[in-house]
Amino acid sequence: MAFVDIDLGVKGVKAFYTTRTGGFSDAPYDALNFAKHVADDKKQVAQNRALISQHCQNAKTAWPKQVHGSSVCDFERVYQKPDQIAADAVVTTQAQAICLVQTADCLAILLASQDASKVAAIHAGWRGLLAGVIENTLDYFNKPSIAYIGAGICQKCFEVGEEVRDLFIAKAPNYTKAFIASKRAQHYQFDYKLVAREILKKHNIEILDSQLCTCCDTSAFFSYRKEGETGRQITAIMKV
């Protein structure tokens, strides 16, 4: 179950995500870790990354350096310098060019045009959501028609401080509904998938929500909040 295909209902687009099983890495990165920025053995990471080519018939793969920001980059620029170009979203019109993001609780969001002319992958933690990474990626599309929200930490697992709540409500008062008071004073359970859905709905985009929680299911997914030192899974999309 290492690679799980996603049906977006768009002809000419392939999308998939990975679980943590079926790779070469040792604990605590066991087993299918794709991240080079953690302390995993680089040779084992390379072996894991090579499995993507097998799954996608040797398509090209771009590896952005994710910084929890709002920058969007063209596939080719990231492809030329893997793990070096700071970007939290990758977009392309090329065929056989895999746009992907790595996550271990943050949201992975995929976008596709209905005519399959353009695709994108977005890494959206709470900082990226606040900074506008989804909106910035949508600016690259004339009219993206479908979005897929991948595995990410759910509301009951995601506690944040009052300062985070205040930042989101300052951006949009209706985001109040994304927060429920926690058992700890001045802390809240944050539904950041709700915020992502609200942004996408404003652009009349059809949304497919995986409803998967990385923190609830660490047998299938890496979760930084639950595990601390751990690996990263990927969520990916390409034109075929």
Rank of each mutant, 00 (worst) to 15 (best):
M1V: 08
M1A: 12
A2H: 04
V4K: 12
I6E: 05
L8S: 07
L8W: 08
V10Y: 08
K11R: 10
A15W: 07
F16I: 01
T18W: 03
T21K: 14
G22R: 06
Y29D: 00
D30T: 13
V38E: 14
A50K: 07
I52Q: 01
S53K: 14
Q54K: 14
N58R: 10
H68P: 00
H68A: 13
G69H: 11
G69P: 09
C73P: 01
C73E: 15
E76Y: 07
R77Q: 13
V90K: 06
V90C: 06
V91A: 07
T93V: 14
A95V: 10
C99R: 05
V101P: 01
Q102M: 14
Q102W: 00
A104T: 14
A104Q: 06
L107R: 03
A108R: 03
A108C: 09
L110G: 03
A112F: 04
D115M: 02
A116H: 10
S117I: 02
S117W: 02
K118P: 05
A120C: 02
A120W: 03
A124C: 10
W126K: 08
W126F: 08
R127H: 10
G132D: 08
G132L: 01
V133G: 12
V133L: 01
V133A: 08
V133F: 05
T137W: 03
D139V: 06
Y140E: 12
F141R: 06
P144V: 14
I146T: 15
I146S: 08
Y148R: 02
Y148G: 02
G152Q: 12
I153H: 06
Q155P: 02
Q155M: 05
F158M: 00
G161C: 02
L167N: 11
I169W: 06
N174I: 09
Y175Q: 07
Y175R: 09
T176C: 08
F179A: 05
A181D: 14
A181P: 09
R184P: 00
A185K: 14
A185E: 15
Y188Q: 01
Y188A: 01
D191I: 06
K193D: 04
L194Q: 14
L194W: 11
N204G: 09
L208Y: 04
L212N: 11
L212Y: 11
T214E: 03
C215F: 08
Y224P: 00
K226A: 13
G228L: 00
R232W: 06
I234H: 02
T235C: 10
M238P: 01
